[in-house]
């Protein structure tokens, strides 16, 4: 087990190198002069431009630029963005909001998805099952920005149950509505996945045997059906956590959340190369760690999986 975890961490190294190289190369190949983005409409004097080029190593060839960047990362110096603010500070500022939003969305989609999926699976073909299936299909089919604006308008503006936008503090209650929107599509997937998995497991031989042992229906469902059915669901949730942490550009945009997604979006628009590379690298690491967490959770759920 320890060896497995060590190996998984070692695997992060090539993933990290490959991903940063790729992103760095893409940003490097962007058309246009990076200094133009910093100087804006008024332009800078040639001396300032030369200074900027030196500061951001823009005068170096690609490989040197990349290696200098790597050196920075390894010494925990992510450098500054084009506005001169340390990138590490910016990430530390916006990430907690995104993390809060992601965890809230994950909890919502997991709890409601699993509970609804369980009930639908146990009552396969009945009215609850059919209506929930149709609803989940609608949620999956309608684009997220439509759902987002719709809920913002209905709940935030018309009914005034929640703030339509999120302030700089990003309190839990403010984030609730964005979290619902963010988790909505995944909720539909979790529901369907749970339902299918439950239907498959409820007819398993060991479930019948558990019933024959004299266990109550409730215990059979919780102990023998649910746990076994959660294995594929957990895989999905883990992958989704990584994706949610990556910031939801659309949802954060709609509700004006000052999170990773919004920051990344702005950095891309501004052509802020160092910022884009740093944020993407950070997200990749988060994604890898989330996946590792899933795999460990997997082993806990299913003892047949052995990590050697």
């Amino acid at each position: 087990m320890t060896w497995y975890i060590v190996r998984r961490f070692l695997q992060l190294i090539p993933v990290f190198l490959g991903a940063t190289l790729l992103v760095y190369f893409l940003v490097f190949s962007l058309p246009g002069d990076a200094t133009a983005a910093i100087c804006g409409e008024r332009g800078c004097t040639p001396a300032v431009i030369a200074g900027l080029r030196e500061q951001y190593n823009l005068d170096q060839p690609f490989w040197i630029q990349y290696l200098l960047y790597l050196k920075g990362v390894l010494t925990f110096d992510l450098g500054t963005n084009f506005s001169g603010r340390p990138i590490a500070t910016i990430i530390a500022e916006v990430f907690p909001t995104t993390a809060k939003l992601a965890v809230m969305a994950l909890i919502l989609e997991a709890v409601f998805g699993i509970v609804f999926g369980l009930i639908a699976g146990l009552r396969k073909g009945r009215i609850f099952d059919s209506s929930v299936l149709v609803l989940s299909l609608i949620v999956i089919a309608v684009p997220i920005f439509v759902l987002g604006f719709l809920m913002q308008f209905l709940i935030g503006v018309k009914l005034e149950w929640a703030n339509p936008t999120v302030s700089g503090d990003a309190t839990i209650s403010e984030l609730l509505l964005p979290a619902v929107v963010l988790g909505l599509v995944s909720f539909a997937y979790v529901l369907r996945l749970t339902r299918t998995s439950i239907i498959e497991n409820v007819n398993a031989d060991y479930v019948r045997t558990a019933t024959a042992k004299g266990l109550s229906r409730k215990r059979v469902v919780v102990v023998h059906v649910l746990r076994n059915s959660l294995i594929p669901v957990v895989t999905f949730l883990g992958a989704d956590l990584g994706a949610l942490m990556g910031g939801a550009i659309v949802t954060e945009g709609i509700f004006n959340v000052n999170g990773v997604g919004n920051t990344l979006y702005r950095a891309v628009l501004n052509g802020d190369g160092p910022m884009v590379v740093s944020i993407v690298t950070f997200l990749i690491l988060i994604f890898c760690l989330a996946n590792l967490l899933v795999d460990l959770l997997y082993a806990w759920l299913d003892p047949r999986i052995r990590y050697a």
Partner: peptide
């Protein structure tokens, strides 16, 4: 369980693997 017990057919699939 208490009054009527059962021994099922296939030992591979009748114990919960987890």
């Amino acid at each position: 369980g208490a009054s009527i017990g059962m021994v099922p057919q296939d030992p591979m699939s009748n114990l919960n693997p987890v």
